[in-house]
Simulated scan of single mutants.
Amino acid sequence: MTGACGGAPGVAAQRVADTESPHSPAIDAFLDATLPKGPGGTVVAARDGRLVHCAGFGLADREKAVPAGCDTAYDIMSITKQFTAAAIVKLEMAGRLRVTDPISTFLGPVPPDKRGITVHHLLTHTSGLDDEQGGDDYEKVSRGRMLSVALKSRLQSTPGAEFHYSNLGYSVLAAIVEKVSGAGYERFLARELFAPSGMRQTGYVLPRWRPGQIAVEYDEQGEPRGRPNEHPWAPDGPYWFLRGNGGIISTPRDMFRWHRALEGDSILSADAKAKMFKPYAYVGALNGGKYYYGYGWGITDTSAGTAIEHTGGNDWSFGDFARFPRRKTMVFWITNHVQREGKWNLEDLDAELTLGVERRASG
């Protein structure tokens, strides 16, 4: 939850009725008073394992006048990291690895300065790996080339010493998932996480997206930048400077299903979830509280109690997925048009939107 500021009314007329997706009048009224006119997206709220609100605002595709809704598919960006982390702890549950293992166990000989890096360090962004050594998300980079770049890079700090957010580190984790499981990264997630959770519309290339289901993204001038899977990708998903750290496409309804799966122990054990949600690395102050990083999740104190959350963003879109264990609530909101130059930036509204929706969902 990155910030808060005011907004302008006027999105109610753009909202499309969906009899299979609940609307909370209180949340509708809050969004109408808070969101500016222009962006498209979807807001989800759940309480006690039940959907309270799942509805779109604005358009998923302006050129074709397609409204955003509960089943619109979006690039969830860095929220992808929680699935990579879950895959790692799932493999640990199966006895296939330990998070204390050095990366050389899976990658073979590594340079001397990387010998101290463990899986735990990658999960908590304390490996010291430097994202500046990587390239563009859509650069045509193989798994082997990505690993070569990571292992040859200059570390920002000694492994375990400091927090340095690293997309490259999560791509290395995705490579470890493949090497340990013997399956492709997306296929492992689909088999072990998505299918058992009932998530049929989440992945890179495996889901059968309906025509127009994936939202078009828009830049700060309001110009269309295409759908996320229309950028250069390999046949099995994004190239390796994006794979594992971002790029998963999902629907808000599927993200609710993931939240519901995390409330039980059938996908991940109670011990595995406790490990994933533990605040290991101090990141800094956020909205008046302290922000820590676990395994693919941030942990922070809020007015609604402890929040376990992760945001995702690029130049065009932004989303936040937040779970509030004490109140048994969840909020997920996402937009395909995060900012309009000189007018609004929804990232600045993150804390206000997330906590405002949660407050009305919790009753």
Rank of each mutant, 00 (worst) to 15 (best):
H23V: 10
S269W: 02
V216G: 05
L242Q: 10
I117Y: 07
A234K: 03
G198V: 06
H23M: 09
N345L: 10
G49Y: 12
L107H: 02
E139D: 15
G184S: 09
A234V: 06
L286P: 01
H337A: 15
P39Y: 13
G222E: 06
W297I: 05
N245T: 10
R360Q: 08
K37A: 14
Y204C: 01
I334V: 14
W258R: 07
G116K: 00
G135S: 13
P112S: 14
F321I: 12
P22E: 09
G135N: 07
T105N: 13
M199H: 06
G244L: 13
E192Y: 00
G184D: 08
W240S: 01
H125Y: 09
L355W: 02
V99T: 13
T329V: 11
R340P: 03
V177W: 03
A261W: 08
K179Q: 07
A304E: 08
L59K: 12
D75Q: 15
N245K: 08
F106A: 10
T302C: 15
K152D: 11
V119K: 00
S148E: 13
L286K: 07
C5H: 09
S153H: 08
D28R: 10
R227C: 12
G40C: 11
M1D: 11
E162V: 10
G6I: 06
A351T: 14
A8C: 07
N245W: 04
N287H: 04
A150K: 03
P228G: 11
D320K: 04
S21F: 09
